[in-house]
Amino acid sequence: MKTNDVILKSVTRVAAVIILTFSIYLFMNGHHHPGGGFIGGLSMSSAIVLLYLSFGVDKVRENIRVDFKKLAAIGVLIAIGTGMAGVIFGKPFLTQTFGYYDLPIFGNTELASALIFDTGVALAVIGTAVNIILSISEDR
């Protein structure tokens, strides 16, 4: 993609950061507020796709050295792995637990194994969405 669009590039520089931050916020907040793995993953992949659109595939690939096909597979594996954890403790597959801990900086925080599962979901979504878009835009 060889458009020379200064406005798009300048906006992207700012917008991508905002979108990425917001997507992480959405992802982390998913347990109690709107958000979660699917939404966080999708918005993060939309940010990455925006980068690709404005700066071109090759330039972004130099800076983000991630194979998105593998990322999707890793996501699925993480999700299955959290399921296996339940099996190890004698519970049914995919049993999730949660607890409240006092952490140094965050104070009393809830830690849930569901968050790890959600991480897997988010990675799978990012991997798939970016992979689809990249595959199509690489083809010429």
């Binding site: 347990h31 507020h33 958000g35 949660f98 607890g99 569901a114």
Partner: peptide
């Protein structure tokens, strides 16, 4: 499930 977002839970 320790979650306030029912859909996410």
């Amino acid at each position: 499930a320790g979650a306030k977002n029912i859909v996410n839970a």
